[in-house]
Computed example of a mutant assay.
Amino acid sequence: MPSRSSDLLLMACAVLLTPAAMAASFDCSKAAAGSIEGLVCKTPALSSQDELLAKVYKQAQAKAQNEHPPTLKAEQRGWIKSRDECWKADDKNLCVGDSYRLRIAELQSRYQLLPGKGPVRFVCDQQPAKEVIATFYPSEPPTLIAEFGDSTSLMYAQPAGRGSKYQGRNESFWEHQDEATVVWGYDGAEMKCARQ
């Protein structure tokens, strides 16, 4: 016959394992059933990613205190909206997980929360004025922040047969043996760049 203490232990375990008790950076008791927040609350792996993002975001906030104009909070609200669009995805868990991974990597590189390799200078098309400056970060996935002229691009590592390949919104960077092929901007011309 089970003892009262074993009954209490079983009840405590049941409470700890309920979805509402899962750790997340928001109140799971307020997450709507069927919502992306609800999915995060009931999925341990996603809940862990949410907690990691909360820690990384707090570190980024500390570095962004003097940011003008202040953009971190607005960008985070925009990211939450895009994460919540995963309700349309065929594989919601994969979509949400990828969303967290990319956001964590973005904050770690943009706010230099990880040690970067660089800056590394590349001169393109043999014209010193056409210079790309790249800093590489060991985030997951690996990231690159590149500067060209007066613009900056965050790029994520992509599978490559050889060398290192990164893709941003409208930019790409593919380095192999100290030479890089860079495309900058929508319909931008391919530049051949040499590491300096």
Rank of each mutant, 00 (worst) to 15 (best):
Y186F: 12
E106W: 06
W79Y: 12
L9H: 09
A157V: 07
G34T: 06
G163W: 00
I145K: 05
L52W: 09
A134F: 00
R103T: 14
G97A: 10
R77L: 08
I133F: 00
W87M: 13
A157C: 09
H68V: 11
E175P: 02
V132I: 13
E37I: 06
E190K: 12
V120K: 01
P128C: 03
Q76K: 05
S48F: 05
E85H: 11
Q108C: 00
E75W: 11
V123T: 06
T43Q: 14
K81I: 03
C193Q: 15
C28I: 05
D27G: 03
R162M: 14
K42F: 07
L16E: 11
E140D: 10
I36G: 09
A129P: 02
K92E: 13
F26P: 01
A89I: 15
L10P: 00
L107H: 12
M1D: 13
Y166N: 10
G116L: 01
K63N: 07
F26E: 08
K117S: 11
P115T: 04
K192I: 12
A129V: 03
P19S: 11
A74Y: 04
C28W: 06
S172R: 08
A129G: 08
D187K: 10
Q65M: 15
K30T: 14
H176W: 11
A54M: 10
A31D: 14
Q112R: 14
Y186S: 14
Q61P: 01
Q49L: 06
F136G: 08
F122C: 07
T18W: 02
E190V: 09
S5A: 09
R83N: 15
Q61G: 05
T135A: 03
K58C: 13
R101N: 12
D7R: 01
F148E: 00
S109R: 08
E85D: 13
S47R: 03
Y137A: 15
S35L: 09
R169P: 07
V182D: 07
L8T: 11
L8W: 07
A157H: 08
V56W: 01
D178Y: 06
L144Y: 15
Q61K: 04
L154F: 06
Q158V: 07
A33Y: 04
Q76R: 05
P141E: 14
G78A: 03
K81R: 08
R4Q: 14
S29P: 07
E175Y: 03
V40Q: 10
S6C: 10
C124G: 04
D91N: 08
S47W: 01
T143M: 02
D178A: 10
K42R: 13
K63M: 06
V56T: 03
E140C: 06
L17W: 05
F122V: 02
P128F: 02
L113R: 05
L17C: 11
G149N: 10
C28F: 06
A12H: 02
P119W: 00
C193H: 13
K192R: 14
S47I: 00
V123A: 08
K42N: 12
A64K: 01
Q158W: 12
S153G: 01
P128H: 04
L10G: 01
E37Y: 12
Q61A: 06
G116Q: 02
A21R: 04
A160S: 11
W87I: 12
Q65A: 15
Y111V: 11
L46T: 03
L53Q: 09
A129N: 09
